[in-house]
Each structure stands twice: as C-alpha cells, then as structure tokens.
Amino acid sequence: MKPAPFAYVRALTLDQVFDLLDEHGDDARILAGGQSLMATLNLRLSAPEVLIDINHIEGLSSIELKDGKVRIGALVRHSEVAASPIIAEHAPLVAKAVPHIAHQAIRNRGTFGGSIAFADPAAELPAVSRAVGADFVLQSRSGTRTVAANDFFLGLFETARQPDEILIAAEIPVIPGNEKTAFTELARRHGDYAIIGVAAQGGVNGGSFSDMRLAFFGAGDRPILALAANAALEGKPYSEAAVAAAQDALDADLDPMEDLNGPAAMKMHLARVITARVLAELAE
C-alpha cells in the first residue's frame, strides 16, 4: 500500500523541530532513519499530517569516547556503529548485536536513536541498552535531561520521552575490565525480527558471575531485564545447577506474547535454551 498524504519538512536545527512539535503536536511524527516508520506509513498503521525529517540536523551523527562513556548520536546509522572501532573496543555488546539488526540496506539507513525511541519490544538495541546500563539524553526547548534505559521503556512502543522532547544521544558506560558479553537471538531468517533473543553483560570474576544483566527482547511488551534470573546467578560459578536456577527464574521475569511464530509456552522454552547458550559463552 501507499501512505496517506502528509506534508514533509526537512528540519535543519533542533529549534525548528521544537517549533514544529509545538505547532502540530500529535499530528507530527519525527522521521529519523525511517526503517520502521516508513513501513508503518506504507501499511497505513499510522497517518501523521506532517513528517519532520531530522536527518540533516548537525551534531547528532557522531560516536565519541568521553569521561568513561561511549556517546552515540541519535542519527548514527547501524552500519556506522558496526564499523566503529570505539564501539568494538568499549561497547562490545552493541557490536555483537548490530549484525543481527535487519539487513545491510536497512542498516545503512536505520539509526541508533530511532530504534531506541521507537521502542519495539522485539528490537535488539533497546534490550542491549538495558544490559549495558545506558542512559538516554532527551532534549526539549527547556533543556536536556538524562533518563536511564532501565526507566525509559514503559510499555508497547511507549517510552518516557515527552511529546515536546527529542532523543539526541545514548551514553554507554565503557565496559569494565572484569565484564564479559554475549548475544544471541533466534529468527526464521537472518536479520528478521527475532522470535526471542537475549543480550547479556556482567562480571565473571574468578569464574563466578557477578552483577550479570540478561536482557531479553521479543519476550514481552518491552525489553526486559531478567531480574530474577540475574539474581539467581549472583556469586555462582558456571555449572549445570546455576544454569538451571537462572532458567527456572525466567518464569518470574518474562511474559512473552503469542504471535505468528508460536505460542507463549514455546517462547518460554526458547528463552531457557538461549539462556543456557549465553551463559556457556560467558563462562568460556
């Protein structure tokens, strides 16, 4: 299908975006990479009156290492994240996740900030941002504020971003020396939305897990930090018993929805399978 008619504005400054958001409110949508938004427009799942194209706003497209954090501008493309030596060295979980995001032609357009702000519960980066303990920087006319990834995702496609705000960057703590990462997802075709997936980062000290963060996607109405499973792992060395304890704890953490891929019970089974896989990888 084709989208319903809309007006298009190429914004060149954030102030211009704030003006347009004031003027049009809910009738306007921000167009970043457009790799989710354009599909929803084509399917007429949404029909805004105005699209505000932010791709030409300067200062939102760089990856920087500063004060122990990796700052990723909202307009950085997935393909740029994949090619970044800063990401590879200091935010390896992000580097592991990005090849799983869709396909090259989509990674060339899709943006880091767009994926976060869209908050698809089956997308990789929202879950990764919880596992790494990212902060998101939101800007409005009255200034900027920072919201932790753990407080940002409120529900299905629902976030803490206010209507007059725009997400301008994500800040990821440089990975500490004692922490390791693992990422896996199950999909029918490489690059498709995952049936279920998990991003994991945390300490492996002397062979024992500490402050482990398993974050699941495709497992509920938002990216989920598996608090019970993470607690079950605390202080334990890798063993069959530790894996089983984490797997059993998932019942308290996850609430997957039935979808075209299968029933909720199948997803819970797959959650146990991928938990065992990432824990084995972390213990290597």
Binding site: R10, G34, M38, L43, L51, D53, A105, I106
Partner: peptide, 29 residues
C-alpha cells in the same frame, strides 16, 4: 512488499544500498 522485507526495491543512495520503499523521494533531495 513495501515494508522492507523483500529487497526487490534495492537502490543505491550516495553510494550505499537502501530499501527504495523505506525512503521518501523527498529525502533524496
């Protein structure tokens, strides 16, 4: 498919392949 899944609309913009169905012509100005 017009939803980014099939790849039949692949076009190169500024040297990189993109989905022609997921980019507005206006964005290619």
């Amino acid at each position: 498919c017009e939803q980014g899944v099939c790849g039949a609309c692949t076009i190169r913009v500024n040297g990189d392949i993109v989905r022609g169905c997921l980019m507005l012509a206006a964005q290619a100005d």
